[in-house]
Structures are given as structure tokens and as C-alpha cells.
């Protein structure tokens, strides 16, 4: 039985809109095993993004507990969370979210800078990562000189910068055509298969969900179905 890497225990996220409390997540409990490929599915407004932010330690719950590697991180300070994020979690976003003033190579090096890695080491690693996504020729281009698919490949390379255990991808193919989307999903799948990374994908697209073995359906801030399947897409 693989160990649990992320565990959410009766997690609530409540936003205050004036005097009204708006619960976005109402008592969500979830376990993610190390090395699994999980898809969180739900329509827009279901709370799936909020769930993703909590899993990625980008936000803290209003109530309930979030465990990472068995440690309760729900009361950690922002600085401690930043450190853990930098080391253990890589992010891939729908909007790619590369820093616009930096080249592809510099973008991939950024997370390593925040971890204090020496320059020659991080440069070498960033080049290797870009090469593994066939991006070495574009490494000195800025994001606005790259296509969507290229940007997303740089973003995946960046997410791997500090060799994290977990990759959290928020609608990673949402801004891409289906052909490019497949390339991106294949890349994520490869990471899961070859490097045993824990992949958590948030999407509303059932064809994306078919890449994973564990699908979590969320609606109105609650998990309505959490089931395992044989991944339909063969990899």
C-alpha cells in the first residue's frame, strides 16, 4: 500500500461576502497516494480550483486540516508554505503563468533561485529539463515569442525544477487545441510513469480525466464521487 502524500480532513473554505458567508468547500476529505495520478473533475463554480489551491498549499482552509507527508500544514506561516511549495510541489496552470520578462531558461531557473541553488548547477539542470521537452532551441525566447504549447512545455519544465514529489496542474490543456493538449497530457503521463511523480490534474474535460486512475468528482463544494478506474488512455 503506497503511503499518503496529501490528506485533507473535513476541510472547509468559506469566503465572506459582506455579511454573508459563502462556503466554497464544505467538509471535503481526500487522500492522495504517493505516485498516483488523480483528476479532480467538476463544473465551473464547483470549488475544484479552491480545492486545487489548498492541495497546492497556495491557500489555507477556514476549517479542517491539510496534511502533507503526514504533517499538518494548515497553520503554517506563508513563508513556511512558500518553502514547502518550492521544494515539494510543481505547478502547471491553464494560463501557463510564465514570468513575461524572463526567457524560457530563466523561467525554469526561477524556482531553483528561490531554493538557493548555485548558478552553474541550476543552469545545467534547466537546460536538461528544457531539452527533455524538446525546448532547448527555444530556451532564450521570452514567453510572448512562444506558442501556447511551447509555453506549457516550459511551464512543465519549470514545475520540475526542484524535483518535486507532486505536480499540480490546473486545466493544463484548457488554452490549447486538442493536438497540443495531447502532447501536454502525454508529457504529464510520462512523468507519472517514468519518474513516479504524483500528478493531480484539475479539469472539467472528461477526455483529460481518462488519463488518470483516480477521478474525484466535486460539485457545490462537496465530493460527490471518488472512484478508481483503469486509465483508458494507454501509456
Amino acid at each position: 500500500m503506497p503511503e499518503t502524500v496529501i490528506k485533507l480532513e473535513n476541510v472547509w473554505k468559506i469566503y465572506q461576502l459582506g455579511k454573508i458567508d459563502l462556503p466554497v468547500l464544505s467538509g471535503v476529505s481526500l487522500e492522495v497516494k504517493l505516485g498516483s495520478f488523480v483528476t479532480i473533475m467538476g463544473p465551473s463554480g464547483s470549488g475544484k480550483s479552491t480545492l486545487m489551491y489548498l492541495i497546492g498549499l497556495l491557500d489555507v482552509p477556514t476549517k479542517g486540516k491539510v496534511y502533507l507527508d503526514g504533517k499538518d500544514v494548515s497553520n503554517f506561516s506563508e513563508n513556511m508554505l512558500a518553502k514547502i511549495r518550492g521544494q515539494k510541489i510543481g505547478f502547471v496552470f491553464q494560463q501557463f503563468n510564465l514570468l513575461p520578462n524572463l526567457t524560457a531558461l530563466e523561467n525554469v531557473m526561477m524556482p531553483m533561485i528561490f531554493q538557493g541553488m548555485p548558478e552553474n548547477e541550476r543552469q545545467e539542470r534547466a537546460k536538461k529539463l528544457l531539452a527533455s521537452f524538446d525546448m532547448e532551441k527555444r530556451s532564450h525566447h521570452k514567453p510572448n515569442e512562444l506558442s501556447g504549447g511551447e509555453q506549457q512545455r516550459v511551464a512543465i519544465a519549470r514545475s520540475l525544477a526542484n524535483d518535486p514529489e507532486i505536480i499540480v496542474a490546473d486545466e493544463p490543456t484548457g488554452n490549447l487545441d486538442s493536438g497540443t493538449g495531447k502532447i501536454i497530457m502525454d508529457a504529464l503521463t510520462k512523468l507519472h510513469k517514468e519518474q513516479k511523480k504524483t500528478i493531480i490534474v484539475v479539469t472539467h474535460d472528461p477526455t483529460i480525466a481518462d488519463y488518470s486512475e483516480n477521478i474525484v468528482h466535486i460539485r457545490d463544494g462537496q465530493i460527490i464521487k471518488n472512484h478508481f478506474q483503469e486509465a483508458k488512455v494507454l501509456w
Binding site: 497556495l58 512558500a82 511549495r85 510564465l98 526561477m110 528561490f114 526542484n162
Partner: peptide, 15 residues
């Protein structure tokens, strides 16, 4: 948004 990205990839407040 850039600040958010930097924080997501591990930038502390002090950075």
C-alpha cells in the same frame, strides 16, 4: 499576477 506566480514557485515574502 507575477507576484502570485513567484510565490507559487517558492518565493518567500522576503524575496
Amino acid at each position: 499576477k507575477e507576484i502570485g506566480i513567484m510565490k507559487a514557485i517558492g518565493a518567500k515574502n522576503s524575496a
